[in-house]
């Protein structure tokens, strides 16, 4: 029997940081922004309002690395634009037989504030049937449990939608937080369509 610990290495690293995280920081004023107004201010209606992205701002893992062997790949950097993350056609062809994608793409925008905080908004575009599949599991780890794997960690909400946001507890919200009510943390809308991550600029906002 295998034992599954959190797949989110960074979540463990930042556990102490989270404990002393900033309290609410209302009234933040943006310095400048790569985010569209539709994504950053109250968009909670789902994938239909995913921001548009120029062709050059689609990240398709063309310069990806093998997670087990390659630690040298430089990141792709995107300024003043929303960024869409999705699989290239070639990678989609390599999806293991019998499996299908749950998420078609993630679209990210970010905005900085004079306080040094940044908000990153993530719109999730689900593949057909993907959201229903994810909702059918009460927790990510119920899947492991069904496979006879001992569970050592409770799932968090973003893990249910396949996001590894590791900076602290995630709150389920009815609407995306506005700039005037921002506080540090991660917030996912109740319909699983959007996540807002608020953290110190320069921090990794999502991923392992």
């Amino acid at each position: 029997m295998r034992t599954i610990r959190s797949t989110h290495r960074r979540a463990a690293v930042l556990a102490g940081f989270t404990a002393v995280a900033l309290a609410a920081s209302p009234g933040l004023t943006a310095c400048s922004s790569t985010s569209s107004s539709s994504s950053a201010a109250g968009n909670s209606s789902g994938s239909a309002s995913v921001p548009s992205v120029p062709a050059g701002a689609v990240y398709q893992f063309d310069d990806q690395r093998n997670q087990n062997t390659d630690t040298t790949t430089d990141p792709a950097v995107f300024k003043n634009t929303a960024v869409r993350i999705q699989l290239s056609d070639d990678l989609a062809k390599a999806v293991p037989a019998g499996k299908k994608l749950d998420v078609k793409s993630f679209t990210l925008t970010t905005k900085g504030f004079p306080s040094g905080m940044c908000r990153t908004d993530i719109d999730i575009e689900y593949a057909p049937g993907g959201l229903e599949v994810l909702k059918s599991y009460s927790t990510e780890y119920s899947y492991y449990d069904s496979k006879g794997v001992r569970i050592v960690k409770k799932a968090t909400v973003p893990e249910r939608v396949g996001l590894g946001i590791g900076v602290g507890p995630t709150s389920s919200v009815s609407a995306v937080p506005s700039d005037d009510s921002l506080k540090k943390g991660d917030f996912i809308t109740e319909d699983f369509s959007h996540i807002t991550s608020v953290a110190q600029c320069g921090e990794e906002v999502a991923g392992l």
Partner: peptide, 27 residues
């Protein structure tokens, strides 16, 4: 892929340190 428990691919995303020059880096 299939379920969130089977991450076929993933991306680490980081914001820039300068809030006046917001950017996203993706690996």
């Amino acid at each position: 892929v299939n379920r969130s428990t089977s991450p076929f691919a993933h991306a680490a995303v980081q914001t820039s340190k300068d809030p006046n020059d917001p950017a996203l880096s993706v690996t």
